[in-house]
Design a protein around this nucleic acid. Sequence first.
DNA 1: GTGAAAGCGCTAACAA
DNA 2: TTGTTAGCGCTTTCAC
Lengths: 347, 347
Amino acid sequence: MTTLAEVARKAGVTAATVSNVLRERGKVSVETRERVLAAVRELGYRPNLTARALAEGQPQTVALMVSSIANPFYPAFALAVERAVRKLGYFLIVCNTNDDPEQERAYLDAVAGSLARGVLVMNADFVQIDELVKLRERGVPVVLCMWEKPDQPPPLPSVAVDFFRAGMIAAEHLVKLGHRRIGVVMGSELSGNHIWRYRGFLEGLKRAGLELPEGHTVFGHDTIDAGRNAGHALLAAVPDLTAVFASNDLPALGVLQAAAEVGLDVPGDLSVIGITDIALAHQVRPALTTVAVPIDESAELAVELITQMIRETGTPGGQPPLREASVPRLVVRASTGRASKAAAGAK
Amino acid sequence: MTTLAEVARKAGVTAATVSNVLRERGKVSVETRERVLAAVRELGYRPNLTARALAEGQPQTVALMVSSIANPFYPAFALAVERAVRKLGYFLIVCNTNDDPEQERAYLDAVAGSLARGVLVMNADFVQIDELVKLRERGVPVVLCMWEKPDQPPPLPSVAVDFFRAGMIAAEHLVKLGHRRIGVVMGSELSGNHIWRYRGFLEGLKRAGLELPEGHTVFGHDTIDAGRNAGHALLAAVPDLTAVFASNDLPALGVLQAAAEVGLDVPGDLSVIGITDIALAHQVRPALTTVAVPIDESAELAVELITQMIRETGTPGGQPPLREASVPRLVVRASTGRASKAAAGAK
DNA sequence: GTGAAAGCGCTAACAA
DNA sequence: TTGTTAGCGCTTTCAC
């Protein structure tokens, strides 16, 4: 590896001057500048980023914590984050916790040890928030990329996404299509991350004068398989359902499969709606109707927040800022339709 | 940030001793050990990884170059890579080139500047291999994660996946089902990355005494949309096709959509087969029959290779090693079936 | 405009 | 067993 010193020697100057040339600090005569640049080229010199980071006191990386890279929600978000972060001159370090608190701790420790200049946390649910707060207190910029608890102010700078509203929108859509016998497949436990989507959905029904009967909700996990299982359970328990709301796209996709497997036509016999609008949603057939959440925008807001924090160098002070991403919006595709006459009559 | 020195002062020892305690170098009395550990805890000390990397002369990160994080092929592979890499004590840096040579260069420069200890390149197609070779010559471990050109020895340590064979397998499957009028949708140009899959497919047909007529192949891109367009074009040009082979799952999915859009039943009227077996393949309906490529295994082999290179510290020397991943295998799902009588008769 | 010198926080001989 | 002494490669005052 060529070093600054070698370049300097070759150019007949000192390291300081080479550094000045490279950082474009001005104060260098055109002539030596040329000489230095030539030497750099000849030697194929690349500045050692580690050394630079040490000298500058800050690494040039930003970390993104996710519970699983394999989560299909990840790609779009990560892409936006990566782009935004690069624009600031940082590199992205992916911290894949696999929902394992130990791994999570390991990463957080590393970040505290200046692995990264700041941390973006994609899904704050799986993370022990306390750990993040501690990290913040140590002076590391931390931002929660998707805060979905409108009842609590976030303990850290966050981007809020109105999932309550998303739930309401889903309910309104189904109601407007004439559905009355509706089931719900949850991608989390009742106390879990999706609670506000559930509440929003309930609220939407309530405003239409409807209630969700006991036994019309199945709680589970945020996966296609869990959704399929939940779908089967729900359809078996309440056979005359005309619509199912899933708290996330993945389980909604599972419900789609379950419906197909028991010979139900979607949307003829059953309508299905999800939340998020991951890429998959429009790639499956029937394409999934869903309430799209502003993924890219959230990523950008999150990066904006962290940029600010990085610039402001310290002093948290006061209530952590909360940026609101725009309101989720309904994306009607092929998986929802009017409640069938038969089913409507059956009510 | 607490530093080693502060911990040392607090514990009444020197930095070297603290370092020894932390690295578990032995040679420390139990008593001082305790004292040091106590100080570490009290001060909430975390070693500065940047400084450590600089002192050790090597960063603790490995880079993964991909053309797009959003490529659905990425998740499974990245997950495997991340795990393997972490097991070695490294962090993963994701380098998303967006198919942009400039970004790619920027990343490669950074890596050369010791951003990372080594580079895994997921898809060597988009990358100017020369740049990678240069990097290797500078002493940076580089491995190509999916070498699909059996006719050329790779210029860098690589993991070979037999896509020629995958193509053959696809052909055999279709032939066995009685298909004779077959179309091909390519996810690359003829000269592109998928060429060997194409050749393999042709070879498979040939062995069955079949040929692919002119105009039965459409070249395009490795996306669902491109696949859909190609599918439409193909079905319009050769209406009596009974099967389509796509060189990758994404375009195969697109063909599935095209078929649905023109009212063709899959697999009743048309069979569709892809290559890779990305997660999506079994999540869509009809589930996609495909030739599964050993993704996880390739990732593991690639990491093994790079580990070796890291350990062997330099001296490339001789033909770069080539690890063979296991043979692709057919995964029959719902998108392929026997050639319909009518169509077979039409021949 | 350029150089000399100190130091970022840690590791790694070597001495004591 | 512990301390001392040098750096790792770069940035950054501060003189010249």
